[in-house]
Design a protein around this nucleic acid. Structure first.
Lengths: 338, 338
DNA sequence: ATCGTTGTCGATAACGTTTTCCATGGTTAG
DNA sequence: CTAACCATGGAAAACGTTATCGACAACGAT
């Protein structure tokens, strides 16, 4: 015991008076070991507190049983997704390593690719990419699934939600409340979700016969600072909107903040609706009307699909889109008639 | 190229016309290779896109360059801590695997121990334990640092904050506002932070000459449901408190919710102060007066210390306590005189 | 010429598993 | 009584690295 080094399969074998091969067999429940020796070896394993070296197993088996999840930053969306992923990972026999780029800019948008090539086949068996900054193909041996994928053609397995419909719902809600000057804060232009949300906004406007006004469409970038600046510009400009649909809860919350700074009340002077339904949206003041996206389930599904892919199981749908729905809270109200 | 298997050091060696030993030397920048061969091998590595197998390196070096972080659940505190940890890990050469127990109960409080023994020395080089449910000693070969540690004697390196003083500040704040019937919602009884916060509350009361009332001290358990129930009981009971100090922002937010359900206004009818200063506390309605704890920095420090420990560096302080401070927002107000 | 030195490089033994395949002994069938 | 078979166990190769150590050539100094 006092020999400080780890107890290895060799020690177990010696103590039990068998070969390492036999010990390996009992660990992996292989056929060909008698009941007597099985019991004996099991006892020794217990006694010595032996744990097989995952590293050695990985080397031998070409499988590490760890899954990587790459997020640009730990903002509310990724965080929520992470919870779903952690949930799905539990009891699966895999471990989850999270890699966060930390929201740094300056990185030539390729950290995902570098990370993937460095780690795939050597540390992780597969990876999920959250809002990837780049459209990349899978590394040959390593399954990858994307959540909220990049625009552009990529044939990665994907989890997303019905962004188009969600955005339509949000915009229609505002229209039904009588709003006509409805501004839109865009999302990260490289993300499919962002363009779909914009498309949904435009489509709803068009369906209602409300002409889109380019000056009401501003950058949001899913980023609080960018959004706050845009909101400020929007609200201090001439002919300000009576409502803002932000592509993101983050942007929506920033918009509410900008309005408050200008002495405008939400929803009194301005209605705001967000997108994502992150937990923060229910907490903030006022609680946000937003489009619900089942973020945790997306994380869960991403992991499940990835595990299936890793195991070589047949995956029926390789691109799943979950439903979105409007949740009306207190940041929107009917436009007073005049 | 089309051979599907990974490119190994052997391939590089063959292509460059040298031995694997030499290739290994250039990878690790060891002395004893001429400028010419160095350049040649580097070129081949580039050309073949070779990446050394982390698994094989780990096996050989007895070092995985992976750090584990164990959290009971991904609630706001852990999440925030995780951000700090992710921050610290970046560029350190380590990866971070997060293991979340998922808040399940029923687990015999020993998952941390099991996880640690299974993984230590085999998948991770060290671990940080966040609000550990059990007081455990380090596994011999594997450094462990605890954040917000368990009560009871443990000699693990520790990161925490000045819980006692923070709780005193919070209680004093309430006292200065004229409150005398100040309730306290306790934390997780197995955590040192919880008992220190309670001690701070009691001490402040005593210093002000206000007798503590046992009936005003209820279970909170750092848990929203437990806290909501206790708050409800407190607020519907006879002689209700005019203020609540919750051991946790989670508990405080639950208290605000319970008050609202009863038609009580915060801070009009009830002042509430929390502890932690998680981001949610600033967002909620009303924004919470709370005790700030530098959670992210705690995560950062935990990782830094752990890395130092792993590298065998001398660590000056093995138990660091960070400052806490009161941040006054809108959930507290002076008690109207009558 | 001889003897160290120095500078490069390669053979090889680990690291801790799993798997294949062979050996052994006992048992059953012919 | 022999042949074939089954059940059990072990030897050894392999997975992809790194470190140690010895080989060898070139070279300067005696």
């Amino acid at each position: 015991m006092q020999p400080s080094s780890r107890v290895t399969i060799r020690d177990v074998a010696a103590r039990a008076g068998v070969s390492v091969a036999t010990v390996s067999k009992v660990i992996n429940e292989r056929y060909g070991v008698s009941a007597a020796t099985l019991a004996r070896v099991r006892a020794v394993i217990e006694e010595l507190g032996y744990e097989a070296s995952l590293v050695a197993q990985s080397l031998r088996n070409h499988r590490t049983n760890v899954i990587g999840i790459l997020v640009a930053d730990l903002e509310p969306f990724s965080t929520e997704l992470l919870k779903g992923a952690a949930d799905a990972i539990r009891g699966s026999g895999f471990e989850l390593v999270v890699y966060s780029a930390g929201g740094r800019t300056g990185d030539p948008a390729g950290w995902e690719k570098r990370y993937l090539s460095r780690l795939s086949g050597t540390l992780v068996d597969g990876a999920v990419l959250v809002t990837p900054a780049v459209s990349l193909e899978a590394v040959p041996g390593t399954p990858v699934v994307a959540v909220d994928p990049h625009t552009g053609p990529s044939h990665l397995p994907t989890i997303d939600s019905d962004n188009l419909r969600g955005a339509q719902l949000a915009t229609e809600h505002l229209l039904e409340l009588g709003h006509r000057r409805i501004a839109f804060l865009t999302g990260r232009p490289d993300l499919e979700s962002a363009s779909l949300r914009k498309a949904g906004y435009l489509r709803a406007l068009e369906a209602a016969g409300v002409p889109a006004d380019e000056r009401l469409i501003r950058d949001g970038a899913y980023d609080p600072e960018v959004s706050a600046a845009s909101a400020h510009a929007l609200l201090t400009g001439p002919d300000r909107p009576t409502a803002v649909f932000a592509a993101n809860d983050i942007s929506a919350i920033a918009t509410v903040g900008a309005a408050r700074d200008l002495g405008l009340s939400v929803p009194g002077d301005l209605s705001v609706v967000g997108f994502d339904n992150v937990p923060e949206s229910a907490l903030c003041t006022p609680p946000l009307t937003t489009v619900d996206q089942p973020i945790r389930e997306m994380g869960h599904r991403a992991i499940s699909m990835l595990i299936a892919l890793i195991n070589g199981d047949e995956v029926e749908r390789t691109h799943v889109t979950l439903d979105t729905g409007l949740v009306v809270r207190s940041s929107t109200q009917a436009l007073p008639r005049h």
